[in-house]
Design a protein around this nucleic acid. Structure first.
Lengths: 113, 113
DNA sequence: CTGACGTGCAACCACAAGGTTGTACGTTAC
DNA sequence: GTAACGTACAACCTTGTGGTTGCACGTCAG
């Protein structure tokens, strides 16, 4: 349950936008509806909804119907999975290779076709 | 020296590309010249050079002249700084706020103008 | 000195990304 | 039932991004 499969492309790209990072911080504190979130930003509702969709595809948030609202909730497990990705870099840097090979091979398949 | 200032936008965006992540893993293992790196990918030299430039702007790598070559070296401190950013999310999730306020305010200035 | 190498940069192209407005549809309130 | 709310999505525009080729410049080998 803890070992969440994470798409590095999507997660890092999702976190590269300040609005999306802010949304993540807000829903990690406590879940909120999309319109509640949208009220906090100087952009259209549709724009915020798109940001939420990007975060959802990256598994950084999940949505849950609650009446006619949609509760957006932060997914800390995905954040932790990203942290683990970074730990892999750390180990690489320390010169420890070992099982690293297959993990990185999976990631760089599309790089070196 | 350890406390490296990191631009979340640039670092996350830089890490969102598989080729760039692969470059980072390679130069974290051991520094390499740009052309050596370029030889490993199925794209033009200029494309790889641009990727390296993006990584350099994000402070994920540094370049160092060595004769007519340019040694690209991975910057583990920046990776660690990103990890610390993620730790902030973790603390947020745990409900610990405190000094978090000013840290996040600095990050979300551009979000909520 | 000349030539090859390694690098940086500009111009260009295709497509993805972030924003907008407008429309549609299910759900609650009255 | 009607109206308002919350959400989703399509169409569109503009800008950014990842790729290309071509050219210029410094550095080393001969």
């Amino acid at each position: 349950m803890v070992a969440r499969q994470v798409d590095p492309d999507r997660v890092f790209a999702a976190l590269a936008d300040p609005t999306r990072r802010d949304i993540v911080t807000r829903v990690l504190r406590e879940p909120a509806s999309v319109s509640t979130l949208a009220a906090g930003y100087a952009m259209s509702f549709a724009a915020v909804q798109k940001h939420v969709a990007v975060l959802e595809r990256a598994a950084l948030v999940t949505k849950q119907r609650r009446g006619r609202e949609q509760l957006v909730r932060g997914e800390i497990d995905t954040v932790r999975a990203v942290g683990r990705l970074l730990d892999d870099y750390e180990e690489l840097w320390r010169g420890r290779i070992g099982r690293m090979e297959e993990l990185l091979a999976e990631d760089s398949r599309k790089d070196t076709p």
